[in-house]
Design a binder for these strands. Sequence first.
DNA 1: CAAAAAATCGC
DNA 2: GGCGATTTTTT
Length: 603
Amino acid sequence: MVFKESSHAMRDMDIFTGTPERGVSDFDLIQEIITEDGASLPGPPPPPADLLCQPHSQNHRRLRQSSSPPSQAVLVARGTACQPPCTFPQPLKQSCTSREMAHPSRGAASPASSSRRGRGPLSSPASKSSGGVSSQNRGGDTDMLERLLQKPKLVVVEEPKERGMRFRYECEGRSAGSILGTSSTETTKTQPAIEIQGPIDHLKKVTVTASLVTKDLPHRPHPHCLVGKDCPNGSGICVVTLNPHSNRRHSFANLGIQCVRRKELDASLQKRRNQNIDPFQTGHSKGIEDMDMNAVRLCFQCELEWEDGNKDCLSPVVSNPIYDKKATTTSQLKISCLNQYKGSCAGKTEIYMLCDKVQKDDIEIIFRRGSWKASGEFAQTDVHRQIAIVFKTPPYQDQDITEEVDVDVLLRRLSDQMESEPICFTYLPHNPDPYEVKRKRKIKSDISFREKPCVTAETAPAAEQPFLYSQPQTMMSPDERLCAAQPGASALGEMCYSEPQDSNNDDTALINQLLDMPAIWEMISDPGFPLSMPSGFDQGPNANSTFANMDMNFNQNFGSYPQDFSHYSDLQFNMLVHENQTPQSEAQDSPSNMVHVKKEEEL
DNA sequence: CAAAAAATCGC
DNA sequence: GGCGATTTTTT
């Protein structure tokens, strides 16, 4: 078996069940004692008792086959995993039973310690409260379990928030922020918190040591550091002592994660070693080269000090993973915008998507509605600098829709199946409502005439200005994009889809572009707006042909341009993006149609 | 060399 | 203190 830190397929998955990982399962813990070859573990081997007396590989197989809740073997594993800074009063190596292993300081074989605390043997109600005790447990083990459960335990009652915090370098100075609790909200901030549960009679104090461990198994010490309150300077760990009688719970406020540089990885690990921090006794693990520097877990080690001065410790507990916000491999996916939000139900509409950084080899674009699902089509070379994707829409499931259909579009990361928030995309029917079409043509014709005298841009050869030429069809104003993002909110988006159009008439493209602009739309909607038309211009039967095949021709034109953005310079791309967002800003230095838009607005 | 990741800078 | 921009290093 190999537990690779950076394994994509395994990320966030329980390796036994294949189910998404939730906190740390008991299976996780058993991992600590079952290693690849059984020999790489330093320190005492697992005791030859009960289930653990079998060869490791057998244990492994046995557990793997079992779909029942964790058995007592797991609990034994918890006990054996307990390691420095806790120290056991008794040596671990002698032939001890699992019971003793689990409860080294007061196992069944140690009546003195039992009576010392004057506790009734098995009757604590608390011992019944924890579930997961299978009836499959063999006789006698129930005793052990109850004893185990009678012992106080450390529980993570508020998990750390998995994402959203950036690991800070030391060079960034400052406090490195603080880890929030998973239930933290804008208004109510929470912190990760632990709680001592179970019986605490005669318990004097509790010392909890928090450190960082690797996300994946085995949980090795992680080179990154915890900084903030209760983290001794330069230690990278956090130590708090609690009086469980006054407060069983402790919240870790102002706990930050300070990342070490890769070149300091070894030194940091060595430091942790010197501090005797290796909660799961993973020893000098090799293969730290591929250590995942973008994810950690908090690990809590707990030492109990009893009134009689004896010390006891609990097996280490780990939190859910915490991911560095800056890492593109794990960060939250986010779609910023599309250049258009509508397209034919036939698919093949070319769309530009701007998004937060993605990994070009680890991302897909999902279209879905109800049970239907399809993927946007693109190659890795269509992902531009990690922040833009040029793709083609998939065809909708139903080619005979008569109404527009809104579907969700979202980004999904292959490796962990994480998804972005969906945005809305509208599939347009092949045959839009004829009445609507006619009505809009009328309006366009009117506008077309009025704008005609101002149009001079057709002199620009389209082939030499691919982006500018195509822009009128593909780009929306920011306002309209906002509108279009809301299902059903766009009054113009469906305009002239599949309407006929004269492909050689640049004016037509301009007109449509003008219609794209809310300002123009408002203007022409104004009852006071003069709409008197000289008769005979662009009206009558020819009006239809004026708009012949606009969309088709656009697609053809556009389709002939390289889709690989890497052929263009950054400047060109930035121009594209920039114009997309602020079309009018380019007006002065561009011979594009935009010039006229501006002029019209100045009227 | 270009792209991506890491590390830093500075608003 | 959060975040994007910028610079440096790695691949």
